[in-house]
Amino acid sequence: MAAKEFTLDDLKRILREGAGADESVDLDGDILDTDFEELGYESLALLETGGRIEREFGITLDDDVLTDARTPRALIAAVNALLGAGAAA
């Protein structure tokens, strides 16, 4: 069975569910390389997002992952790396 992949759509859904969306930001636009702060998500919102990702995908994110991943692209890559590591185990 193939491991589930974490996608941009998953991230947008989790961001909206956990922290809402700033009315001035279009999450449906090209946001992959936009800094989370520019998208209106500060550290507390990202911690909530990380917790939701962990519960939904059955992984554990180090605190460094959430602080180092400044963009959606970086966070998606980090989550998928963990999902891939879990599938290989």
Rank of each mutant, 00 (worst) to 15 (best):
T60Y: 03
G58V: 01
G29E: 14
E23C: 02
K12Y: 05
I31Y: 02
D22K: 06
I14H: 09
V79Q: 00
M1T: 12
G58F: 02
A3D: 03
A78S: 14
L66K: 01
E48T: 11
E54G: 09
E38M: 04
E48P: 04
I31D: 10
D10T: 02
R52L: 15
K4C: 07
M1E: 07
R70D: 11
L82W: 02
D28H: 11
N80Y: 07
I53W: 00
A78L: 10
M1Q: 13
V25M: 10
R73K: 15
D22P: 10
F57C: 08
E42F: 13
V79H: 04
E38C: 09
R73F: 09
L75G: 00
T71N: 03
T60Q: 10
P72G: 05
L32D: 15
K12S: 05
L11P: 00
S24E: 13
L61H: 07
R13T: 08
L32K: 14
S43K: 07
A74Y: 04
D62N: 13
E54L: 01
D64V: 08
P72C: 11
E17C: 04
E38L: 14
A45Q: 00
F36M: 06
R16W: 02
L75T: 07
D64C: 03
F36Y: 05
A21R: 09
V79W: 03
K4L: 09
S24H: 13
D28P: 08
G58Q: 02
T67H: 11
R55M: 06
Y41H: 02
D63N: 11
D10K: 00
G86R: 15
L32M: 15
R52C: 02
A19R: 00
I14V: 09
E48M: 08
L75R: 02
L83P: 01
I59W: 11
L27S: 06
E38I: 00
S43M: 09
A74H: 03
L75I: 01
E54Y: 08
T34H: 14
T71A: 12
M1V: 13
V25D: 08
L8W: 03
E17G: 09
L27T: 01
D30S: 10
G50E: 10
L27Y: 04
V79M: 05
A78I: 06
K4M: 15
T7L: 03
L8C: 04
A74E: 15
D62Y: 06
L44N: 03
N80S: 06
E42T: 12
L11H: 08
E37R: 13
L47E: 13
E38F: 10
G40L: 00
A88N: 10
D26P: 09
L15V: 06
A3E: 08
E23M: 01
R55L: 10
L32T: 12
